[in-house]
Design a protein around this nucleic acid. Structure first.
Lengths: 145, 145
DNA sequence: TTAAATCCTATTAATTTGGTAGGAAATATA
DNA sequence: TATATTTCCTACCAAATTAATAGGATTTAA
């Protein structure tokens, strides 16, 4: 499961991406429209800024804007930022690799092989899930309603 | 990430499945050979028994045996038992569905659609990952070493 | 000057995780 | 019957993580 931080972060990014002409977008307006606790969201957007995914404008009429093209921001990056590894086991993680301390032989572990295949597919999917892609999906979902 | 409980449970089950002719297998021997803390493993096997995945024999020379065929026990079942939902979001879980309270419209949520596709693939993979399948994988991995 | 925004630091309550402790009860064998 | 070896049962616990909240300082546009 994703943490609420990850979920809120992705929702906020999609929200900002949907308002490309009205940027910057204030935390308050995102919090209200997406039903996310204001102060919590504030700290999340600060982290996204720190990771150079967002950029901020201070003062009145300030807020947050995307710091990259919406097709360069994807769910994998955001999830890794807030939740760390995407893999089911640390020993198959690309970005947060760690041995399973109890493991007798990593190279012949069948559980590991399963986890590896799942990680590869999941990461590939999360990579295609850019903000642009998510917005396209939402458009189609609204059409077929 | 799977919890250690899930990971230890699956490792213990694979271990027992690999000794079909020497059942029942004692907790102590599994703990020693798989490097899992004894008392912790004890409580894990108790849960597996409770879920009718294992059965136990008390007293000297007692231990745990599989309560089903090793091709009927798969990673999905064990993970759900210890970690709950497999899905990235509660709103796409088959067995532990919950609304995302903050969500404005589940039916047009693009993030949800991504999570749904990933869950479907992951669950399918975890279903094919039976104890028999995992042991076959390990055999092949040992051959190609 | 004021309203509205981000920025910054600190705190916290609840839950989950990953165990440990200690012994009771059951059973096979000598 | 005594003993060794097992599961079974209850209770406890420390550390980490999660999901926030509190309160105000600073910045900027109008």
């Amino acid at each position: 499961m994703l943490s609420k931080k990850s979920k809120y972060a992705i929702k906020a990014l999609v929200h900002i991406a949907s308002k490309l002409e009205e940027q910057p977008v204030s935390v308050r307006s995102i919090a209200t429209e997406e039903n996310i606790p204001l102060k919590f969201l504030e700290s999340i957007l600060a982290e996204l800024k720190n990771a150079r995914i967002l950029r901020s404008t201070k003062g009145k009429y300030g807020g947050y804007s995307l710091n990259k093209s919406p097709d360069e921001i994807h769910m994998a990056e955001v999830m890794r930022l807030f939740d760390g590894a995407i893999a089911l086991l640390p020993c198959v993680s690309e970005n947060f690799y760690e041995r399973c301390e109890e493991c007798v032989d990593e190279l012949t572990c069948g559980i590991r092989q399963v986890a590896m295949e799942i990680r590869k597919h999941t990461v590939a999917q999360l990579h295609t899930a850019t903000l642009t892609n998510i917005l396209q999906r939402e458009e189609r979902l609204r059409e077929n309603k």
